[in-house]
């Protein structure tokens, strides 16, 4: 039942150590915690694996360079890293827009593009929040929300009593809300 990822305060300690930790262990830990989801976000936004790898590398380099200016009172580490990634993706798209021959350089309305990016960023953070739930809770949410099954159908599929499915789904949503709040992604 332990969340797979550390509490935000522990993340902030990692960021605090980035500049002074000459072993690279803090950077490695931070990268392993967030590299996957940020890579997914960048890959989804750019549609190009090589470009996404460059973005993620650039994000963590920027984080390392600017670790001293990170303020834990203003944003969780995840939020901070996502904002850096968002900026890096926008920069990459602008560069691509003036270099014909490269992918994803359609002259789309940049405001619309940024709004789409914001939604995608939200989606990846919610996906990360789901990963922090217990497998049992995640299963209930996935079956009901993404597969469109009713509580009764989930009970039939899983062999669990209907009451267990209902209470587990309720607890799953409560846990999800808590995780999202902790991540600074509170639902309205």
């Amino acid at each position: 039942m332990t969340p797979a990822l550390p509490r935000p305060a522990e993340d902030a300690v990692l960021v605090g150590r980035l500049r002074t930790d000459e072993t690279g262990a803090s950077m490695r830990r931070l990268y392993r915690l967030y590299g996957g989801e940020l890579f997914g976000f960048a890959l989804n936004a750019l549609g190009d694996r090589g470009g996404a790898e460059e973005i993620v590398q650039e994000v963590f380099l920027r984080a390392w360079r600017h670790a001293g200016s990170y303020d834990a009172d203003r944003a969780a580490v995840r939020t901070w890293l996502y904002q850096i990634t968002r900026h890096a993706i926008i920069d990459a798209r602008r560069r691509a827009a003036v270099r014909p021959g490269l992918p994803h350089h359609d002259p789309v309305d940049e405001t619309e593009s940024i709004a789409t990016l914001e939604l995608a960023m939200l989606g990846w953070q919610v996906a990360a929040a789901l990963e922090r739930l217990t497998p049992e809770h995640r299963q209930m949410i996935r079956m009901a929300q993404f597969r469109g099954l009713t509580m009764r159908e989930i009970a039939e599929h899983t062999g669990l009593p209907l009451g267990t499915v209902k209470s587990r789904t309720w607890y799953a949503l409560r846990s999800l809300r808590l995780v999202l709040e902790e991540m600074g992604v509170a639902p309205s």
């Binding site: 690279g24 950077m27 490695r28 990268y31 392993r32 967030y34 590299g35 996957g36 989801e37 890579f39 997914g40 890959l43 989804n44 790898e53 993620v56 590398q57 963590f60 380099l61 390392w64 939604l119 995608a120 939200l122 989606g123 990846w124 919610v126 996906a127 990360a128 789901l130 990963e131 949410i141 929300q145 993404f146 949503l173 999800l176 809300r177 999202l180 992604v185 639902p187 309205s188």
Partner: peptide, 30 residues
């Protein structure tokens, strides 16, 4: 009540593994 709308944004998203090659390049750059 606001959770389903948020979950809708995450549909189909599967968090990939962080690329090992980036980790190594990153530590070299640092």
């Amino acid at each position: 009540a606001g959770l389903p709308a948020l979950l809708g944004q995450a549909e189909g998203l599967k968090i990939p593994a962080a690329p090992t090659v980036v980790e190594e390049r990153l530590l070299d750059r640092v």
